[in-house]
Amino acid sequence: MIRSLPVIAMLGLALSACAQHQPPQVRGAAFYAKYCTSCHGTSAQGDGPIAASFRVPPANLTLISERNGGVFPIEDVMAQINGYEGRHQFGGMPEFQKDLNGPVVDYVAASGEVIKTPKALIDMASYLENIQRD
């Protein structure tokens, strides 16, 4: 067993490295599957298994661009996903700040401002942008 520990550790490192090299949409899809399907559903249309229990139904995430004149508002989407502490106590989406641990990268906002942003947050927004209906 002790001899196999280094092999197991190396395998774990290799799998972690592979995950980092996946396209953002794939990493975002994994985040979505873990945190969002219970409310927004696997189709992202607001039809998750607990959606009916909410006073305000979860949004159809495939229509974000349509609701914004054909433009995907990536910064607004990231702000909504990230949230802020205490927001959930008033209803709506829970805050995901604590679930977005991991590498932080420089995100260049539309204004040109460089913002340190969790890579997972950018990946999630990229996934949502990718699933927009035309």
Score class of each variant (00 low, 15 high):
I2A: 14
L5D: 08
P57H: 11
R87W: 06
D123P: 04
L15V: 13
S4A: 15
E85R: 05
V108G: 01
T42A: 15
I8P: 05
V77P: 01
V56T: 13
A30K: 11
A109S: 11
S65L: 02
D76A: 13
S4D: 12
G69H: 01
I50P: 00
L11W: 04
I81N: 01
R55H: 07
A59F: 04
L11E: 06
C39A: 07
T37K: 07
G70L: 03
A79D: 09
S53T: 13
N68W: 03
Q80S: 11
E75W: 01
E75A: 01
P94T: 04
K119H: 08
P23Q: 10
Q132C: 12
I131A: 11
D134W: 15
P118H: 00
D123W: 03
E85T: 08
M124K: 05
L11V: 11
D123H: 02
D106S: 09
G91H: 04
S53I: 07
E95W: 00
A125E: 08
G112M: 07
Y107D: 04
R67W: 09
M1W: 12
K98T: 15
E129D: 14
R87C: 07
Y32C: 04
K116A: 13
S65R: 10
S65G: 12
K119M: 11
I8M: 15
M1D: 12
Y35Q: 12
D47E: 13
V26C: 04
G91S: 06
E129H: 12
N130P: 10
F72T: 03
L61M: 14
A30F: 07
I64V: 14
M93W: 05
A9R: 06
P49A: 09
D99W: 03
R3P: 15
H21R: 15
P73I: 05
V114E: 05
A14Q: 12
K98P: 10
N68Y: 06
Q132T: 08
S38A: 14
G102H: 04
R133Y: 05
